[in-house]
Amino acid sequence: MRREGLLNLVLALLLLALPFAAQMLGEPFYVTLATRMAILALAAVGLNLALGFGGLVSFGHAAFFGIGGYAAGILASHAFNAEPLLGLPGTDQMPVIWLVAALVCALVALPIGAISLRTSGVYFIMITLAFAQMVYYFAVSWPAYGGEDGLSITVRNGFPGLNTANPLSFFLVCYAVLMAALVLMWRIRDSRFGAALQAARQNDTRVAAIGIRPYHIRLAAFVISAVVTGIAGALFADLNRFVSPSMMSWQMSGELIVLIILGGTGRLFGPVAGAILYVLLEFALGGLTERWQFFLGFILLGVVLFARGGIIGVLAGKARHG
């Protein structure tokens, strides 16, 4: 456990140091790369609660990622056109956007979870995918906000007291949110709720025999997980200053799962390690060939066959999986 703690600290510091080093080297592009790592890590941290701790393989989390993105895009476009939604001011401020993204994601995740969690195993994977595809096609066919072409965010949304147009400031915002989410996950994992969630992953009947209804525990985890991923989506939209239905595509859902498997399923910093590696590969291999996913496939195969605990598993030893 102590080795994992040390590794987590190293990963956190590494990610924090990266953009500062880039700044000093005069390579501002790397700051954006680090921001991308932090945001994808945040999205996967959300999914990891459901997938890693709860054993719920959601193949539809891109829907929440996209909903968060659209929350940012829609609010920003209304604010930019000086026609704030429902006449409320401040819709170009990140805290407001995050709140809206979180609320909308929770509202959408609740019925999706309530229905999907009646199934399990491969059916759960398929039904979450089906819901995500519904959300995807809804976005594609909604012309008011760009439809298939997506929606541009002309000016990056603000954060009180910071100039978010500065890449380093924006990175720090994303990094802070990521760390806050990790603290939340750490608290959840070590709480009674977390223990019950992990127990339910192990065995439904046993959990019921001690008087806990696994369904409610899983539903709560699914909703929290969707909310965290949704906030990541809002940040992602702000990073690219653009949101489109592709954020909700099933490939995106798959990417989030790949991140977690690379980093270490059910490990607190698994998604962070996975996101750092994924973005590095995307950058390094993507520079060599457009078909870089071919090599990613080999790496994933290697991890699944020889290092099932992912990066964290290899470096910090035995996983929590029993």
Binding site: Q198, A199, Q202
Partner: peptide, 8 residues
């Protein structure tokens, strides 16, 4: 629950 500690 083998994947939890005694306390959990």
């Amino acid at each position: 629950f083998p994947n939890l500690t005694v306390q959990e």
